[in-house]
């Protein structure tokens, strides 16, 4: 699960690193992605694993549209306007989901992958395992894109100094929009993967978003590779917390870890500030 957390957090971190805006609708984006996977399965008979590119594409488009429709307008505004803009979007998306899809829990039954395998002493569900592998692959892909490709470098440059980047001939507005598209596409992939084995309902994104904020803060804000470490750490603490404490306490363990790290190193484990 750590890798899925890392992927959700990477999307958040990418957007924050680029423009110092926290997307408070990140969890709702995840919820939308899960509904995309659900309806692709219910209406088109596509397994979430098969509809993954569709979820990524639709969420990428959503991110792009949200940037141009909302974020661009509050970019030069006060911090509070930015917070309310994405927070308002979160409320809007959640209410829309409640209105359109109802509050019932939905699941994708008879998924392509099912069953459990033994991994040493522990059993793990095949869908969970597949989700981890796929999330890790997506994360590595994102990392390679950011560090090797021309556009990835331009994104990093924009994140590090947008004025200097503009003077290199980089269209920073385009980079912002691209950052929102890619960051949201990450959530699209994560949502598609989670839909294989998780309940789908309008509030489903909230706990994941909370874990994503913790993951990003653990790794260090705006540092995409570090979110992988953060995600793995959160995943491990959650798993072992569930194993050695009671399952009900596993998130307490995660947040205790978070508090500890923030008190000890406010900039995160690998933070640059």
């Amino acid at each position: 699960m750590g890798f899925v957390y890392a992927l959700i957090a990477a999307g958040l971190s990418l957007i924050f690193g680029l423009m110092e805006i926290v997307n408070f609708a990140h969890g709702e984006f995840l919820m939308v992605a899960m509904y995309v996977a659900f309806f692709a399965w219910a209406l088109l008979k596509l397994d979430p694993l098969v509809s993954l590119p569709l979820a990524a594409l639709l969420l990428g488009t959503l991110g792009f549209t949200v940037y141009h429709g909302i974020i661009r307008r509050v970019l030069d505004g006060p911090m509070l306007a930015q917070i309310f803009a994405t927070f308002g979007l979160a409320v809007l998306l959640r209410s829309a989901a409640q209105f359109l899809f109802g509050v019932d829990f939905r699941t994708v039954s008879q998924p392509l992958l099912a069953g459990r395998v033994a991994l040493g002493p522990v059993f793990i569900g095949v869908p969970q395992l597949a989700a981890s592998v796929a999330a890790l692959a997506a994360f590595v892909g994102l990392f390679l894109f950011l560090s090797r490709s021309e556009t990835g470098l331009a994104l990093q440059a924009t994140a590090q100094d947008r004025h200097a980047a503009a003077l290199m001939g980089i269209d920073t507005q385009r980079m912002f929009a691209l950052g929102w598209a890619i960051g949201s596409a990450c959530v699209g992939v994560a949502g598609g993967l989670l839909a294989m084995f998780f309940y789908i309902f309008p509030d489903v994104g909230t706990p994941f978003a909370l874990l994503a904020y913790v993951t990003v803060a653990l790794g260090g804000f705006g540092n995409v590779p570090a979110t992988l470490a953060g995600g793995v750490l959160v995943g491990l603490v959650e798993a072992f917390g569930g194993l050695y404490l009671t399952p009900a306490l596993k998130y307490s363990a995660v947040f205790a870890l978070y508090l500890g790290v923030v008190l000890w190193r406010p900039q995160g484990l690998f933070g640059r500030f």
């Binding site: 021309e150 470098l153 440059a157 590090q160 200097a164 980047a165 290199m168 001939g169 980089i170 640059r272």
Partner: peptide, 19 residues
């Protein structure tokens, strides 16, 4: 105003980003 977390080579390389 170099890009602090890019390498020297990447910094210089980006100077010729324009098509």
């Amino acid at each position: 105003r170099l890009f602090p977390y890019l390498t020297v080579r990447q910094n210089v390389w980006l100077g010729a980003y324009a098509r």
